[in-house]
């Protein structure tokens, strides 16, 4: 499968990158690690006239502890860098645990945090070659008007499959988006549309530049549990991130957050999970309750080769386990 022809830009600064985005709005695709974009381009899921390789923008490759506390992570920081960061391990363990589960070591050396946050949604009926999709019939997400997952529906259910965003949602991360008019900062939770095709609330001439985590979110214990068939390589079939703050293992929980991924078109905070946990010592029963809440938030459909029923069951189990793991520290 050949890459179709495109013109490659390699800007060195955010300003020139954004200028190119604005100039070729709609015809241009941002390339960070390339681990997801290039296979998709070979499958003709994207056929941009221009590719914006931002890997030359050095200022986006840093993890920086901010003077006033908190952390800034450049969009081009690789997943391996996250994994190797002592500061993140000590202060935001849930992020490291999530990053460590992504794909394989080689892919983590290339894949970036920005790419993981903006990862294209995935579906068994979408991530296929052009010939395959021709044979099957094109779907809402690309070139067609059908949905093979929810026949008759008009909504795209392609599933968000990033591992780090649920961890970042728990940590209340904010992101910086650069555009022709300068930068804006929004909560990560506000980035996602909840739909498989539109995915991100980010304009065609904008790009994600930085991630911020507040200092007040450090010191939470965290866990990330991921359903996969293989111990490596696989995208999550369901994933649960949990953070818990308490003074000790059996002490009542002071604060907690639970988020899930790979079972909806976007990563989701589990509503009510904090209420279930705060003020109580974590035990099997409470963890099970959180599991039920997570399963209520999850809407797995036939977007992957494990049955939705199984994945919904597993969200319960993995949420329970993640709560217990996080509480145990």
């Amino acid at each position: 499968m050949a890459l179709s022809e495109f013109q490659l830009f390699r800007p060195k600064t955010i300003q020139s990158a954004v200028a190119l985005l604005a100039q070729h709005k709609g015809d241009i695709q941002v390339l960070a690690g390339g681990t997801d974009l290039l296979p998709s381009m070979r499958q003709k899921l994207f056929a941009p006239k221009y590719v914006l390789d931002i890997r030359g923008v050095e200022e986006l490759k840093r993890i920086r502890v901010l003077a006033g506390g908190g952390l800034e992570i450049g969009a081009l920081v690789t997943l391996s860098q996250i994994e190797d960061s002592e500061f993140i391990r000590r202060n935001y363990p849930v992020l490291r645990k999530a990053a460590m589960t992504i794909a394989s070591p080689i892919l983590r050396n290339m894949g970036t945090i920005g790419g993981n946050i903006c990862l294209d949604t995935r579906c068994l009926w979408y991530n296929q070659s052009y010939a395959w999709r021709t044979s099957c019939g094109f779907c809402i997400k690309k070139d067609g008007s059908l949905c093979h997952v929810a026949p008759g529906g008009s909504k795209c259910w392609a599933v968000f499959s990033g591992d780090t965003p649920p961890a970042l949602l728990c940590l209340g991360a904010e992101i910086e988006i650069a555009g022709p008019g300068g930068t804006r900062r929004i909560a990560l939770a506000d980035l996602y549309t909840g739909l498989g095709d539109t995915r991100l609330k980010i304009a065609k001439d904008e790009m994600l530049t930085r991630v911020f985590i507040r200092e007040s979110m450090s010191g939470y214990r965290g866990a990330y549990q991921k359903l996969r068939v293989r111990g490596s390589i696989d995208y999550p079939l369901a994933g649960v991130a949990v953070i818990v703050k308490s003074s000790g293992r059996h002490a009542p929980v002071q604060d907690a957050k639970v988020a899930i991924t790979a079972v909806n078109p976007s990563p989701m905070l589990v509503v009510g999970a904090d209420h279930a946990l705060i003020g109580r010592a974590v035990d099997e029963h409470i963890a099970t309750v959180v599991g039920e809440l997570a399963a209520r938030t999850a809407k797995p459909l036939t977007t992957s080769a494990l049955t939705p029923e199984y994945r919904r069951e597993m969200i319960k189990v993995f949420a329970k386990r993640a709560v217990l793991e996080a509480a145990a520290g």
């Binding site: 009926w125 099957c136 019939g137 059908l146 949905c147 026949p151 036939t302 080769a305 049955t307």
Partner: peptide, 16 residues
């Protein structure tokens, strides 16, 4: 058994 469809499953294009 790995793919589960309710009802008739996906409808494909007219030549399906």
């Amino acid at each position: 058994g790995s793919l589960c469809f309710r009802g008739k499953g996906p409808t494909r294009h007219p030549l399906d």
